[in-house]
Each structure stands twice: as C-alpha cells, then as structure tokens.
Design a protein around this nucleic acid. Sequence first.
RNA 1: GCCGCGUUGGUCAAUCGGUUAAGACGCCUCCCUUUCACGGAGGAAUGACGGGUUCGACUCCCGUACGUGGUACCA
Length: 509
Amino acid sequence: MRRVRTRFAPSPTGGLHLGGVRTALYSYLFAKHHGGDFVLRIEDTDRNRFVEGAEQYIVDCLNWCGIQADEGPHQPGPYAPYRQSERKDQYRQYAEELVKKGYAYYAFDTAEDLEQMREQYKSPGNPSPQYDRHTRKHMKNSLSATETQVKTWMDEGLPYVIRIKMPENETIIFEDMIRGEIHNESALVDDKVLLKADGMPTYHLAVVVDDYLMKITHAFRGEEWLPSAPVHIKLWEYLGWADHMPEWAHLPLILKPEGNGKLSKRDGDRLGFPVFAMDWKDPQSGELMTGFKEMGFLPEAFINMLAMLGWHSGEEQEIFTKEELIRKFSMERVHKGGARFDFEKAKWFNHEWIKHTDSSTLLPLVQPILEEKEIKEMNVDYLVQVISLVKDRCTLLNDFYTQSVFFFQSPTSLDLEAVQSKWNNEKANFFQVWSDELGQIQEWNAPAIENRFKELATIHQIKAGELQMPYRIMLVGGKYGPAVFLISEFIGVKNCQERIKHFLNVIGN
RNA sequence: GCCGCGUUGGUCAAUCGGUUAAGACGCCUCCCUUUCACGGAGGAAUGACGGGUUCGACUCCCGUACGUGGUACCA
C-alpha cells in the first residue's frame, strides 16, 4: 500500500475562492485521515496571469484555515521545487518523449491560423470546431507536413507548441471516487496543447508530470476538470506511468445562492457576503474583496461549514472540530450534486462556534476589534467576563463591538422611542431618587442592585418591570444586551449615575 | 450545437428495494425572559416527469425535461 499523498494545486491569480478552500480541505482531510501527506503546489505556468502576492496570500489563507501543507514552496520536501515555474525544464523532456513515441506532435499554427480554422469549419451543427483528428491534417504541424518541412520551420525558429495526438476511436474509461465509472469517446476530445510556445507546460502536462513525480496517490479537483480528464488519463498511459496514476475525485461545484451558475468572485459583492477566505486586494485595480476572516468568521467555523457543503457524516451532528473531521471524513459520503451556497447557514455555523468557544480563547480575537473602535486600556479579566456575557448574541466576531461597547463607554445615542410613550414625571422622579440610592448600596452586585431597585419601585408604586426598559436605555442606549442589573454591576456606581443623569437631561427638554 | 456530470422541502441534506421520507438552516406559533439573544416545545414545507424491472421503488434500468460544467498556447 502506497503512502497516501494528496495535493492542492492552485494558480496564483488572485483571491482564494471558497470552492478552492474546500478542495484543499477535502484533500487535506483525506490525507490526514489516512495518515498521509498533503502537498501545496503552485501552478504558475501562465505568466500572463501571474499576480504579485497571490502565492503568499494562498499560503496565508490555508494557514488561517488550519490546512497546513506538509510540503510546499515554503516547506520544501523531497520533491522540491513546488512551483511549476521552477520546474519548467522538466516538462519539455516528457513532451519530447511523447512526440518521439508518436503520441504527440509539433504544431506551428499561429493564433491567427487557429482563429481562421475555427471560422472555416464553423457550422450551425458545430459552432466551435476543435483542433482534432478532423482538422489537424489541415493545420501546420508535424503530422501534416513532411519531415524536412518541419525541420525547416524549426531551423527558422518558428514558434511551436506540442499537442497530444488523441486516439481516433477509443472509449476512455476511468473510475472517479465520487462518481464511479466515467466514459469518454476519444474522438470527441481535442488535441490539447501540452507544451506552450514559451516552453511552459499547460496544466494538462504539468498536472500529470508533477503528480507522478510527487507520488500523488489521490487527486482532488473541481468538477470543471471532468471534461479534460480523458486527456490526463491518456497522458498517464502514454508516459508509461499507468500503474502509478492517482485515483481521481472530481468535487461537485459550489453554486450561486440564487439564479444559475457556479459561485463567482463577483457574486459576493453583489449579494453581500464574502467569497474569498481572506481579504484580497487586487494589486492592479486596487479593488478590495472582503474575506470570511475579516467579516468576522472563526476559521474553525469556516472549514466546518465548507466541510458540510458537499459532505455529510451520516449522523445528526453538524458541528465538528478539525480533528473530528479528519477522523470521520470519507469520500463515500461526498455528495455528487452541486450545492448552492447559503450565507445564512454559514453564519449559523459561526454563531455556534462563537457560543461554544471559551471566552478566553475568544479574547485575542475580540480585543483588536474593540481597540480598533477606540476602546483601549481595558482590563483583560473584565473583557473575558464581558465576552461570556454577550457571546450568545454574536453571530460574527464584529458583533462583539455593538454587543459590548456599553460595558466600556456611555451610549452615544439613546433609543428614546422605546420609552417616550410611557414616560412621565413619576418615572423621572423615580430615577432621580434611584441615582442617589445606588450610592447607598453596600454590596455591589447584581442581585443586591435588583432587590433595591424593586423595593424602590414598590415605594414609588410603579411596577418594576415598567422601569427596567428605561433603565436599560439609560445604560445601553438600546433594547438589547444582558440583564440590566448585571450591566449595572459591571460598569459600577459612578457610570450608572452618570448615564441616568445624562438620560434625564436628554429626555427632560 | 456537441460532450461530460448531476437532480429528495426555499437551502444544506439522511435513506444504500419495504420508514409515518431523518436532521439542520431559514420561516411561523408558543414557552422561558417585562430587553435582545440563548434555551425549550410545536408547525408549514420534499422524492422533476414518463416508462419499465420487482410482490414492493426516492432507491435499480431507459427516455424526457431541467440544471451545471467543458468545448483556449487559462487554470
């Protein structure tokens, strides 16, 4: 039994999409479940699409998610380098080998030639003709031209690519871990370019060569790769590596919540939720795309949510730690159909995680959020207690601000509407007295404060309940938050008195 | 157009021929709480369609429809 090795092979072209993270996650969970290795490989074979900083960003995202690679550009292992651009020299020999064996050929067509071909063979029945067994004999390549002609072109330095020569008439069958047997007719698959004119491999060649060289045993990727799988199958065969071919798993797509199509970068902005794991600022346009991290997600919740989007344990449990996911994950339980992304459910996962995470663990995450809003110099023990009091009310980490400001600062606005209709002189009177009374309380704790409050209400012949809302508005500013007497205890006498006074001033005029 | 893949409530989904077709999110009602949440109880809501196979089909097969992906010197 070979040691299980999976890889995540993104191309550094921009933000890391949620679907990408899920592919990485499943690969990681599978590898770890089987005690194997998870490899990060950067597929930067397209120099035109290279984006500065994107690689580091991908690494940062995976680290934030807790999906650590055992090998990668930053943790070189025995199969280094892990960037395809740095492996450039290796690919050519395999492409040439294929040409020698007759499984591939040189093609000298220019972009214009290709365009012309598509134009020429276009018909209503075939709107996009391919470079295949029909058309290749009319093109400028080593199959249609004589050996001497090809040599002349070579000597002239004409740019050329190497294309795979797909078999004429063969049913290509392979087993997908999720979908079972997949059949394809070779006649319908085109002669994909393997080596580009600039000497770089295309994905098709690179993925096969690198998976072989890196001893990958299980290859996970998005469903969008299914149509080109036959090319890869043939390549494994032609290169003589069929016995080492990894098992394939084509993961279902993550779809838009509404409408049709797969979830794209643009959808986030449009629908008000993130699509990227972390904030991504496009270096070209300067445009900033919000990430789940910055939106206030816990990484544990994020991967938990992604794991459940397409995989199911079969039990009723939905909240899983990474360790549990590793233990329970299996390909048999990965769903075949695409899943619509539901941000409401994503928030629910985060809420669950916030509720169940220790307040002291939350502390380092909450503190910066408050500090950013100018709440500084706070006592950490006090903050931890505040967090315990309000975390049930926080769906996103950023909610901690609204839910706990009033423990640190007087409310800047008061929801007077909440009290105005029932406000009267008697109540104003009550709070005048209450303010003084607060100073008399010996044991400063919530129960004591509450008792005194109720006693005083009785004396004033007002129902205590009717006084609690105004009191809440005084302390909090709005109709929310933990018990008022608890808040009173936390903020102390002086703050209570100040806030009462301020309220009375505001409502008085 | 052609090819691949898919299809259980609005969404995520369990079921691997025999169930009153789970559960979760969201929604609604009620309880708890004179706030907001949390928590608890309950409710509405599902097998795309048509043929087979079978004693029996959500489950197996075929067709149709629909969805989705691909059809680049991008991944």
